[in-house]
């Protein structure tokens, strides 16, 4: 299958925007990915080995969280897996944060 790598993780995947892996399940595919590019592991998983809460996985157009078997879902060579960190934020009603300038 093809795993699409988002912009912030490409430096940890040899600059690639996509990586081909052979795997039977989504979980296996992530294992294969992080074996080839071990620096990705800390960005995808917690120290306990769980997928970080802000990392979204999409098997083709399906959110893996809502698949019945989740990361144990079986895959085919034609499938794609997109890794997409979440995007959110917004202004706060009060206060102003400290700004770090380089």
């Amino acid at each position: 299958m093809t795993i699409f790598i988002p912009t912030p993780l490409r430096p940890f995947a040899a600059g690639k925007d996509a990586v081909e892996v052979e795997a039977a399940t989504i979980s296996d595919a992530l294992d294969s990915l992080t074996q080839v590019h071990p620096d990705l592991r800390k960005h995808l998983f917690t120290g306990e080995g769980k997928l970080r809460a802000f990392v979204n996985l999409y098997l083709n157009d399906e959110d893996v969280r809502y698949l019945p078997a989740k990361e144990a879902t079986t895959i085919t060579a034609a499938d794609t897996l997109s890794i997409i960190p979440s995007i959110a934020g917004g202004c706060l009603p009060h206060g102003r944060p400290r700004l770090r300038r380089s």
């Binding site: 988002p6 912009t7 912030p8 430096p11 802000f54 990392v55 960190p85 979440s86 995007i87 959110a88 934020g89 917004g90 202004c91 706060l92 206060g95 102003r96 944060p97 700004l99």
Partner: peptide, 23 residues
Amino acid sequence: HSHPDHPAEWSLTDLSEAHWLGC
């Protein structure tokens, strides 16, 4: 994104919810 009637400065919410390093 926009901050309606608030400064063009990042908020603590913006930082805690930001995960695209380098972007």
